[in-house]
């Protein structure tokens, strides 16, 4: 079965870690992930500038590793990301901002990608909250 997973919370929220553990279990159970979509405060889960305290899990880094290892389609909502200062190279240049914090494997795109993922997948599962 194909899953679309949407994450609405930043890397320091329990629900971002929960989404990651769910996504790992999806693949471990032999299912596929059609797309991961990071929306609203979930765009912070994609930021490369996060420095996790030494005694805490670095969930943003774990997302990056997971996505890279499994070559997953990981889309960050562009409107949500811009307003929160999560920028890739193109957007940092376009708006003349001093820093880039969204390198590969993440991709900035529109909300239509979430809609498409929901159509492509057998299940859409959203994660937010505490």
């Amino acid at each position: 079965m194909k899953f679309a997973i949407a994450v609405f919370s930043p890397a320091h929220a329990p629900s971002s870690r929960r989404a990651l553990r769910f996504a790992e279990a999806v693949l471990a159970s032999g299912h596929d992930i059609a797309r991961l979509f990071f929306y609203q405060d979930g765009v912070h889960s994609a930021s490369a500038n996060i420095v996790a305290p030494q005694d805490e899990l670095d969930v943003a880094a774990q997302w990056r590793t997971f996505i890279t290892e499994h070559s997953l389609d990981a889309v960050v909502c562009i409107a949500a990301a811009l307003r929160r200062g999560v920028l890739d190279d193109t957007e940092a240049n376009r708006y003349q901002r001093p820093a880039v914090n969204l390198p590969a494997p993440w991709e900035l795109s529109g909300l239509g990608q979430l809609h498409e993922a929901a159509q492509l997948a057998d299940r859409l599962v959203c994660f937010g909250g505490d």
């Binding site: 790992e24 057998d122 299940r123 959203c126 994660f127 937010g128």
Partner: peptide, 19 residues
């Protein structure tokens, strides 16, 4: 656990998260 969460999400037709 998480594998059972995955199975549950397939057992039901839809998953609605109260965000």
């Amino acid at each position: 656990d998480y594998p059972a969460f995955v199975e549950l999400s397939l057992h039901y037709d839809k998953v609605n998260s109260w965000l």
